[in-house]
């Protein structure tokens, strides 16, 4: 079983549209993991049935039982997150600022502060239209996207793939280079980097590739909307060569991406011409490279 992770550094480069097309092409042999839990969109194209749903708890949040509070103020003094304030003479915790370190509960002389488990989101196992299974999630509003929910989604997908003897796990990662991305990269066999030929696209590609290098994972790159800036495109191609990143393909700027999305379709369902051909070719290549 091979694990393929699709990331982009920069948002809006077409990562999810491309991942969805790969999922469609891979069909029953690919378990999909939507690890962009902060703004998950895969479900809009995959027709999930939400067959299984469960709450996900991660970390803690402080809670002050007002009846025993003696207003000593110790908790406010030690909190490094400015999460406790005095409102109408009552000491209250702002659950958004609280990072659940538990320090306040430890110094409270009347033991009136307790830590409660924090509901961080929900996660799902769904049958999807590709004939396979998708593990996906929804992070709670303002929740700490520490990568724990990402790890949960990925591990569940891995277990399912092993149990059902699937060939691949396909992971839609999140933008950026922080904890959720680090979490989606760990254990991958191959990384697909989706970029666009813009100053931001190249800048972000370089940063996210620095991270990929730390994990020592083989990578390939798709340049989306390649014809928007041929000069920048050549610059990216050169970066790929210099860093031994496989240049998988160039996709043209095509509003069919949006038209397909509006219909809830993947690109390979909507388009039966050039784009379909390029995506199919890339997917075959990615499969081969991840197994090599």
């Amino acid at each position: 079983m091979k694990e393929i992770v699709v990331i982009s550094g920069k948002g809006g480069t077409g990562k999810t549209s491309i991942t969805a097309s790969f999922a469609m092409l891979g069909g029953a042999d690919v378990v999909v993991a939507d690890c962009d839990v902060d703004a998950a969109d895969m479900h809009l194209l995959m027709q999930p049935d939400y067959n299984f749903a469960d709450d996900f708890y991660s970390g803690e949040v402080a809670y002050i039982d007002q009846s025993n509070c003696i207003s000593c103020g110790k908790c406010v003094d030690i909190c490094r997150f400015d999460a406790i304030s005095v409102k109408k003479k009552l000491y209250v915790v702002d659950p958004i600022s609280c990072e659940g370190c538990g320090y306040c509960a430890r110094v409270c002389p009347t033991k009136t502060i307790v830590n409660k488990n924090r509901l961080a989101g929900k996660w799902f196992i769904s049958k999807i239209k590709t004939g396979s299974i998708m593990v996906h999630a929804r992070l709670g509003i303002g929740a700490d996207n520490s990568g724990k929910l990402v790890a949960k989604v990925k591990n569940e997908a891995k277990e399912i793939a092993l149990e059902e003897r699937k060939g691949f796990i396909l992971v839609d990662g999140s933008p950026g280079i922080g904890c959720p991305v680090v979490s989606s990269l760990s254990g991958a066999n191959f990384v697909v980097l989706v970029t666009e030929p813009s100053v931001s696209g190249l800048h972000d590609l370089k940063r996210v590739y620095e991270l990929v290098k730390k994990f020592n994972i083989k990578a390939g790159c798709i340049i989306n909307k390649a014809d928007v800036n041929p000069g920048k495109c050549a610059e990216i191609a050169q970066f790929l060569t210099e860093n031994d990143i496989v240049h998988l393909t160039d996709l043209p700027y095509d509003e069919n991406f949006t038209r397909a999305m509006v219909l809830g379709q993947t690109m390979v369902e909507y388009d039966h011409g050039k784009l379909n051909e390029l995506l199919t070719e890339s997917w075959e290549n990615v499969k081969k490279l991840s197994s090599g």
């Binding site: 999810t16 969109d41 958004i96 929740a143 996207n145 933008p175 950026g176 999305m261």
Partner: peptide
């Protein structure tokens, strides 16, 4: 981007927030 802690930190002191979106299913969601 997103909705988790870094966004909260970046916007919590603002007087006004502008949300930029695009008119697509992903954008709307």
């Amino acid at each position: 981007p997103g909705t988790s802690c870094p966004v909260m930190e970046a916007t919590k002191d603002a007087d006004f927030v502008i949300l930029v979106t695009e008119p697509t299913p992903f954008g709307l969601h």
